[in-house]
Design a protein around this nucleic acid. Structure first.
Lengths: 325, 325
DNA sequence: TATCTCCATAAGCGCTATTTATATTCCGTA
DNA sequence: TACGGAATATAAATAGCGCTTATGGAGATA
């Protein structure tokens, strides 16, 4: 797979080399630390710069100093690599272990909405209940490593056999705008809006953020990032106090707890994009925990979502579909 | 830099190929989408499995299904790649004189209180701002791996050199009880309370939970766990709807957003136990981000904490000390 | 100015990933 | 149960990438 550099203008090794240069201060020292010769690092760095189209380090002065672009790459690369380094160890850890406890992971955008009903329901099934809020990816890996028994998230892990799946709800992604902004009706208007106003995004750590990124990429929309968050609350806060817009969902709007007049909602121009929250869990023959929790969650949401939306964003009432099997 | 696979048992292209296989369902289809031949993908996948030491897809059945390890890799890889895809476009932006990213981690119990002021302050220092909420431990490791520039948390990372530290606030742990329960005045009364009512605890993943556990252990108190959460909101929800008690802090009470009459607060009998929130950050010579963010956060809290507490729990007004250097 | 260190470039080469070609396995269907 | 088609694995050949050694130039220190 070493063909022409299609999509990624860098390799792990190159990023690693670059970081070594940042840490060590010189190319020679970095080469020593990496256990390769000096020209190897020199060339790698040069090609990295060529492919990125930017100088990364200013070698005119000594010791070499990072350019602004280099400083950014350092941030990004070191985050990326420390993330990558975790993957292999985690995969080795996938074994099985069982605890009597009932452990439930809930995606951030449903944490507040569901915690109450989950506590009530789960308390009747288990003596000990642990509930954690977080991102889908974290819950999924915890589920697969059996650190969780069930999770509410955006990934139904369809490829994994021997898991139970209970769909909870489907909802559209919508635009959320600062009050005063005119909702765009077409993609061109959306593009114009983005030229004048900041786009507040979910981070790529969240499934929601990944979904939205991919959708925008397919539409050829390339909003600059200015503000990013990994929770619904974070995304909506900046809208209330300035000129900006975000892509979010009705449930996220409810979860964020913003005031009714702080944000204006509108449909997302272009192709429809939705997300589905699914309960995924290890089968539990005795307690039937996945099924019972799913049904309780649905009942609770059925009773509360429309009512809350009618106060926050009447136009979105009916957009959230609580599912059944 | 294509020597023996030292540290990373995969390349971007291989992860991309694996994701294509996940999406398309078959190796052949993935190869078509990637514009390579089928054996290329087949071999790449096989070597990926060999290097990771795990089967990723079960090809015995058709269509192939992911193993648990494969599902985990899918999660991780897709997050990693969507993060990586953003890097190059961003670097082009930087050359147009934009300021680099500022990434801030905030402990869950201050997330809502601080997000607004942090967005306002950080936006003036950087063109891009990322704020994530979570647990202190996660932020600390992200800070050390440079995935974060500054963090607000309960750990000042005193052992790590070359970090700036700015104390934000100190507050006591207090008891929170379901309405109707009588606040215990002594440790014996607390023990009696625990015999009759459920103790809702913070999970051991959170610094707060670890602190409380240790304190209780020293006092010889051994409450059975029944319910545990890792966010302030989660801990207080069960109290509002049943007979139980928890140990929490004034800031957590504010953060949770519970109604004023849902919970009753009282001092914690026995030795005083407090916690201190500190801002820790990488030094930032140019922008002075840690100092400026700390000062803005203090000002904001100074203005808002007492006011909010007076509505929620008048007896706690004055218990939170906003610090200075 | 001399010297040391660091860096860039050039040439050669080994290795890796790709391709084409072919065998094998699995599934649906007659 | 036998057969056709599709998907996958394997083998051999090839091409390209990145490594090394060798060498010249540039900056810092005395």
């Amino acid at each position: 797979m070493a063909g022409p550099r299609d999509e990624f203008p860098f390799s792990f090794a190159e990023l690693n080399a670059f970081l070594a240069v940042c840490d060590e201060g010189t190319i020679s020292a970095a080469a020593r630390r990496l256990g390769v010769t000096q020209p190897a690092v020199s060339i790698a760095l040069g090609e990295l710069e060529a492919r990125l189209g930017t100088k990364l380090v200013d070698r005119a002065v000594r010791p070499p100093v990072l350019t602004p672009a280099g400083a950014l790459l350092r941030q990004r690369a070191s985050a990326l690599l420390s993330e990558a380094r975790l993957i292999a160890p985690e995969m080795r850890e996938i074994d099985r272990g069982r605890l009597p406890l009932l452990r439930i992971g809930v995606i951030d955008s449903l944490a507040r909405s569901l915690t109450g009903v989950l506590v009530r329901t789960a308390s009747e099934m288990a003596d000990e209940v642990a509930i954690q809020a977080g991102l889908t990816a974290g819950h999924a890996s915890n589920l697969l490593t059996r650190k969780l028994d069930v999770m509410f998230g955006l990934d139904d892990l369809a490829d994994v056999p021997d898991l139970e799946r209970w769909p909870i709800l489907t909802e559209p992604y919508v635009l959320a705008l600062s009050p005063g902004l005119t909702p765009p009706a077409t993609l061109d208007e959306l593009r114009a809006l983005a030229a004048e106003n900041g786009f507040v995004r979910y981070s790529a750590r969240s499934s929601t953020g990944v979904d939205i990124d991919r959708h925008l990429r397919r539409l050829g929309l390339n909003f600059p990032r200015r503000l990013e968050f990994d929770t619904p609350y974070g995304v909506l806060i900046p809208l209330a106090s300035g000129h900006g817009f975000a892509i979010t969902t009705p449930i996220c709007l409810i979860e964020s707890g913003v005031a009714p007049d702080a944000v204006v909602c509108a449909p997302l121009p272009g192709p429809r994009l939705t997300r589905t929250v699914t309960l995924v869990g290890h089968p539990d023959r005795r307690r039937r925990a996945p099924k019972i929790l799913a049904e309780a969650a649905r009942r609770d949401l059925q009773a509360s979502v429309a009512e809350r939306l009618s106060r926050l964003a009447p136009s979105l009432v009916g957009s959230v579909a609580i599912l059944d099997d």
